[in-house]
Design a protein around this nucleic acid. Structure first.
Length: 417
RNA sequence: GGAGAGGUGGCCGAGCGGUCGAAGGCGCUCGCCUGCUAAGCGAGUAGGGGGUUAAUAAGCCUCCUCGAGGGUUCAAAUCCCUCCCUCUCCGCCA
């Protein structure tokens, strides 16, 4: 959720930011009018309520006829307060329903664009891997350690079993990421993956993306698509001491995504599945320093991929491809030899105060309590990283070389499907 | 799953229908005092919304919040209902 002050003080600026995101800016005029309306209604209701409270106090001191006539007046007042209040509430609801979905204004450095194709490449690392043989894809390489067929039998499409060395690789990657991130000041966390609706609303996934989320109907719980959700909500409704910022966490969790609307896309292998594990960075940071923090998180992200030796490029995600909560986002796209393409493998966002406002996460500063900024970035998305490693490090005999940095964690240097 | 107890400010804890956003204590902040420290004295110390203002400076006015949401009442922290959470005992369990 954005700051209401935008509506009141800088409506034109807000319109511009909506235009950049290809959203009809006329909503702003509606909201300005609605906002004035609701405030004047609220004032009316509050004045009447103040009157009621004053009379109530008086009644306590009255006796006899005086009391009786005061009670009569109070009854009428009470009715007035009830109607005025419910009118004001209705206007508030109407306003919030239109206001809450407004997306975070993009940072000035975010490129204009409609969709993924307009993201702007800003850097590259390494060279796309070349082979003197026909490279295989991860399924061919992992016939015995990635079982998508039985995954489908048991759970349906987009589910897979990981076995044997693939599992060892997963835990090696997790431990590798956690070790590096701990050293950089991140606290490792294993969060709950089943959360209440408020956590999803607070992080901006609801109401916009609710069709991507698995629900547990009997218990009013939802399976998270990323540990960003429980990590952000972890400090919900809290007020930090300014000196404690930034607070950095590295969450490990399974992630569940319905992938609604992705039917037919990336159906082969484990690139796009309903369930995968991921190490995610999350930071609660001082609002004046969130852009530095964004670069910092991203540098951690790059350091991990570089150490694993995967060729990649970085894109600055354009306005049309940015989620509602992000003011800016970098995606890392790893080179996928079997596809001959760069594919998204991690992403790193500054959501500024969009989440903290909804989740009420503040710090106590000299000028009073202010909202913190929150940021998130993928450290390692296991499935996709596994694909990148297998496909880039494959050898002509169908085996895969373990990246040097991972060998201390796997205990083996080569594996085969 | 069964039985019981409870959720009040940074913390402890009183209040059980009106003058209570809330006694008292601890902690913290500022000041005073004191060779230093400790002790002592005085003042202050929840969050949020709206209004006033050039101002998300101070101040002032006002509303909301005593786990959440409903209800009763002229009036609710206090009474009733639902839900959430915590604790104790029993059962079950990785």
């Amino acid at each position: 959720m954005i700051d209401i002050a935008w509506i009141r003080q800088r409506p034109d600026e807000l319109k511009e930011s909506l235009v950049r995101r290809h959203i009809d800016p006329s909503i702003v005029d509606t909201l300005v009018a609605l906002d004035e309306d609701r405030r004047s209604k609220r004032t009316l209701a509050e004045d009447k309520r103040a009157e009621q409270k004053a009379l109530g106090r008086e009644i306590a001191t009255l006796e006899g006829d005086e009391r009786i006539s005061a009670l009569e007046r109070a009854t009428r007042l009470s009715e007035d307060v009830a109607t005025l209040t419910s009118d004001a509430d209705a206007l508030d609801d109407e306003f919030m329903a239109a206001f809450a979905p407004l997306p975070n204004p993009p940072h000035e450095s975010v490129p204009m664009g409609r969709g993924e194709e307009d993201n702007v490449e800003i850097s590259r690392f390494g060279e796309p891997t070349s082979f003197d043989f026909e490279p295989k894809d991860h399924l061919e390489l992992g016939t015995g350690i990635i079982d998508a067929e039985r995954g489908a039998k048991v759970s349906g499409a987009r589910f897979a079993y990981l076995l044997g060395d693939a599992v060892m690789m997963e835990f090696a990657l997790v431990r590798f990421a956690l070790d590096r991130l701990s050293a950089a000041g991140f606290t490792p966390v294993v969060p709950p993956v089943l959360v209440r609706e408020e956590a999803l609303f607070g992080t901006g996934f609801f109401p916009d993306d609710d069709n991507q989320v698995y629900q547990i109907p009997g218990d009013d719980l939802y399976l998270v698509g990323t540990s960003e959700v429980p990590l952000a909500a972890y400090h919900g409704d809290e007020i930090f001491v300014e000196e404690d910022l930034p607070l950095r966490y590295a969450g490990f969790s399974t992630c569940f995504r319905r992938e609604a609307g992705a039917a037919g896309r990336d159906t082969r292998g484990i690139l796009r599945v309903h369930q995968f594990d991921k190490v995610e960075m999350f930071s609660f940071c001082h609002p004046d320093r969130s852009w530095e923090e964004h670069e910092f998180l991203f540098s951690q992200e790059e350091a991990l991929i570089q150490e694993l030796g995967i060729p990649y490029r970085v894109v600055n995600v354009c306005t049309g491809d940015l989620g509602a909560s992000a003011a800016k986002k970098y995606d890392v796209e790893a080179w996928m030899p079997a596809q001959g393409k760069f594919r998204e493998i991690t992403s790193c966002s500054n959501t500024t105060d969009y989440q903290s406002r909804r989740l009420k996460i503040r710090y106590k500063g000299e000028k009073g309590n202010r909202l913190v900024h929150t940021l998130n970035g993928t450290a390692v998305a296991i499935g996709r990283m596994l694909i990148a490693i297998m496909e880039n490090n494959q050898r002509s005999d169908g085996t895969v070389a373990v990246p040097e940095a991972l060998v201390p964690y796997t205990g083996f240097e080569v594996f085969a499907g």
